[in-house]
């Protein structure tokens, strides 16, 4: 497996609903800078929006690391969402289409996974959740 190199990065704290739009704009800036096309940009930002909402709703906020990365010839954007919330007891269940503990649609996590090229989730009950996604420029 080829290693990923970080070209540029920034981190943002997400504490309130008002942080969502500026965060999405920051992600867009990163995506535009590496020349990502509009469809992939839209997929990435929509995925980012879902994850940041989960972080606010279920963990009361957290931090996001935004990185422009390269791997071989590919460039892309990696986003890492980290919270110190209650964690997810059953990740397989949370990843199912239609499962929600919050009486919502339950499409956030499985939908996000479909929108990106790499999706990684780690969670420990009582400690928090970390979700990392990668969208390649030409992915």
């Amino acid at each position: 497996m080829m290693t990923k190199m970080v070209l540029n990065k920034d981190s943002m704290r997400i504490e309130r609903e008002q942080d969502v739009v500026p965060f999405r704009n920051r992600v867009r800036e990163f995506a535009v800078k590496i020349g990502m096309g509009i469809v992939n940009q839209t997929k990435l930002i929509t995925a980012a929006s879902e994850l940041v909402r989960n972080m606010l709703k279920y963990a009361g906020g957290g931090a996001v690391l935004i990185e422009a990365i390269s791997q071989g010839r590919e460039t892309g954007i990696r986003l890492t969402f980290e919270d110190k919330g209650p964690g997810i007891g059953d990740i397989a269940l949370a990843m199912k289409d239609g499962y929600s503990s919050g009486k919502s649609l339950g499409i956030g996590l499985p939908g996000t996974k479909r929108l990106v090229n790499e999706f990684d989730i780690k969670s420990k009950t009582g400690e928090g959740t970390t979700v990392s996604i990668v969208k390649w420029k030409n992915g």
Partner: peptide, 12 residues
């Protein structure tokens, strides 16, 4: 169009 494509993949 990009929004429409994304919504379908998201499953909404």
């Amino acid at each position: 169009p990009a929004v429409a494509i994304t919504l379908i993949e998201l499953g909404l």
